[in-house]
Amino acid sequence: MLLGEGKMGITIEKVSKNFGEYKAINNVYLEIPSGDFTALLGPSGSGKTTLLRMIAGLENLDSGRILFNDTDYTNKAVKERRVGFVFQHYALFKHMSVFDNIAFGLKVKPRHLRPSKEEIKEKVYDLLKFIQLEHLAERYPSQVSGGQKQRIALARALAVEPDVLLLDEPFGALDAKVRQELRHWLREIHEKLKITTIFVTHDQEEALEMADTIVVMNEGKVVQTGTPEEVYRRPVNEFVYRFLGRVNEVNGRYIRPHEVSLKRAPLGESFPAKVVHVHFIGSTVRIQLTRLDEDILFEAELNEEKYREIGPIAKGEFVYAQFTKLVDFDFQQKVKPLPQKESVL
């Protein structure tokens, strides 16, 4: 609808960048196929934002190359890259109306490429309709809500028909409900436009829910790349496993709370535990327990069905817990060698 040929794959080749002694990006190799919806996921300081800014050209590289469809873009100026960039804090121009913000990219085009006033107006109103904010065209950014600001920022980025859409923690500054809405909305937009999209997040739930591909980063390196299911079910190491969900650690081995089974009576290799806390989080029940034999705190999560099976559990009660599927990364690594950390794809 709004975009022409959005076919743009990105290759990041042996890219490194230091800030002084600190290795922000450490020899990263990554291929992002055209039309993909990719999440760069990692804790703060993992280099994910730096990598995104490098793709946009907002940050220089110390070494390596960045290719857009096999063309070397490493030294290309930001304004020539045709990337749409959406900032965490929107970066809407405060002194311009919503209309002028969205029209900005069209108005700054060189004279021979610049659409006429009428064409600009038509295009901006198309975009406003697209983000369902036509009625706000004459408002100023200070007069609209956070969620609306982020939609306007996205419309502004789409106005110039970018080949790639880059979003830096796009929902980080919004409250939970608006964030949820915008996630669906952004996903829908991607379905419609098929534009190669990369977004940065530190929220594993957001990445799992939205992305086609998740790139897990830590300490300036790509740790794992794969579909949400792959990274969740087959994490390559302890870091990915821990980062993608809640974890109980048992003597260097791991188990997710929802995989802990609780029983009223001893069974197999179960051990007794005392209930410390019971939280009802919507449809799941999260229970904190202490192991009686080793005095270790751990967590169990039951869905409604399982909780009904075992019956109401109260603080102070005793139950039997079983760790059936403990994950051991040292063991895994010995058995089958993992692919190279930097080149997973």
Partner: peptide
């Protein structure tokens, strides 16, 4: 002055003069 406004303008295709005249100067 927050750098992000200049960066946003440059990703939208503005050159240095346009960034100064349209973004920085009005601010």
């Amino acid at each position: 002055l927050d750098q992000q406004y200049e960066e946003a303008a440059s990703t939208l295709g503005a050159n240095s003069l346009q960034i100064f005249m349209k973004i920085i100067l009005p601010t």
